[in-house]
Design a binder for these strands. Structure first.
Lengths: 254, 254
DNA sequence: AACAGGCGTTCGACCACGCTGAACGATTAT
DNA sequence: ATAATCGTTCAGCGTGGTCGAACGCCTGTT
């Protein structure tokens, strides 16, 4: 995944393993955590109580769990991205107009991360959450981003993660992907034509800052049956490119 | 809470100090981090590279920073709260109707934390962010929550945090607060009448689950000049109580 | 009641390993 | 050229993170 530490700190690694245990299992017992992290019960206990003392973990009636300190940290990270605050209101508006799910995503450690996801009239539970990680080579936002990263970055990302087949249409060949990226640069938008998952189609645009570096991408996605014809080839690309231009105005120097 | 660990782990504590350093300073140098955390440069470096190897930290061109892994963790914590997903669409609707800032907040470690904040037509940057921590005794959401916590929890929270004066109207006397909490229980809503800050008025309601335990609170807030008269005494309380009822329907057993 | 099995926590003792300070090459400033 | 400061590596000391055993507290079973 990432660069190896020359001298990794073991107790940090168990701490992180404990965080992951708390993340995926809801209110696990100390023993569960110990097993998951591969340490003794007493060690797990010492880490947990240290985390609790500093407010990163709470133990309610049902056991230990991550505290809302992580929401605070997460929001802090999100706010520190260039694109989030500027793009968010535009994403909301676009979602209201189209009725589709609109995403803002950025690259992080060679993968895509959704900074924000919004569906126009949101009475339905969004199974889709912010912070979710996705592959770059098979999503509309991801390809829009890849199209504007330096060539060597792209290669190293593809080396690292490969192009596994996710559905019938997934692009699994580097050469095909490369020419697709060129096309995206030329026409100004990307399409995920059921490449990430069956039945899901998605149109995306990159967002560049004042120095012409990609700082993220926007996309609108919906059922393949809805995102078709004129809408797919004209309406959505036009709308997205308009939104992109409005957002990029904020990064121009006057 | 904040209960002292019997055997705190030092290296965990330096790791957490490093997280905090990265949170508040934008892309600090290794040396800065070391100074902030009170450790040697090499120690800071080892922690940082361990965090990087596991994806919790990235080092871009400008230095080390927290990765979006924290957004993922934060969203996970937020989703695990009972109230968030259910209340969010109602908060959005209420905000559109009133034009005010609507908050969803919960209690965590004796303080209030905003799970979500939304302002109707949000073209303006929200300086107000989710994850933000606030005192319970001087905010509308906080008092609504306190009014429904077990008496001993309330006392222990007040013992821990006190009632410091934040503005002219802040309630700094326990007895006064206690009778206010009784009143809130009776009439079903709370008011922050410029108690948290000058010029800010706020109306809140508690949200209870099927077992009549508070799981959070909602509030609508705005400039004191706007939140007055009928609006303060009738319209907002009525609207909020209606929203509360709709939300609580989801927690009733049939 | 008495028991067995689960939990979270505390304790003592050993030796891994986290910590420091010094040294390194790479940058940038003077 | 010189100096200062950066991030990183290294060797070695000694502390403190680790484990296993033991404890008290529950819950369910007999």
């Amino acid at each position: 995944m990432t660069e190896k530490a020359t001298r990794p700190i073991r107790s940090d690694e168990t701490l992180l393993a404990i965080l992951e245990a708390l993340e995926e299992r809801t209110t696990p017992s100390v023993s569960d955590v110990a097993t998951y992290a591969g340490v003794s019960k007493s060690t797990a206990h010492n880490h947990l109580s240290t985390l609790r003392e500093h407010g990163y973990v709470v133990d309610g009636e049902r056991g230990y769990e991550l505290s809302l300190r992580f929401l605070e940290l997460g929001e802090s990270v999100r706010m520190n991205t260039e694109i989030y605050e500027v793009a968010r209101p535009h994403a909301d508006e676009l979602s209201r107009e189209t009725g589709l799910l609109v995403n803002i995503s950025v690259e992080d450690r060679g993968k895509g991360v959704y900074l924000y996801r919004t569906r126009g009239d949101d009475r339905i539970r969004l199974s889709t959450r912010a912070g979710e990680v996705h592959e770059l080579y098979c999503t509309a936002t991801g390809k829009a981003i890849l199209a504007h990263l330096p060539e060597r970055r792209v290669e190293s990302i593809l080396d690292r993660h490969g192009l596994p087949k996710r559905s019938e249409n997934t692009i699994t060949d580097r050469e095909t992907l490369r020419s697709e990226l060129t096309e995206i640069r030329e026409r100004g938008y990307s399409v995920d034509d059921e490449e990430y998952g069956q039945g899901l189609r998605c149109v995306g645009v990159p967002v560049l800052n004042g120095d012409d570096a990609v700082i993220g991408a926007l996309s609108a996605s919906g059922p393949a049956t809805e995102v078709v014809g004129e809408r797919l080839t004209t309406e959505l690309p036009t709308r997205l490119k308009r939104v992109r231009n409005r957002i990029e105005l904020n990064f121009r120097d006057y």
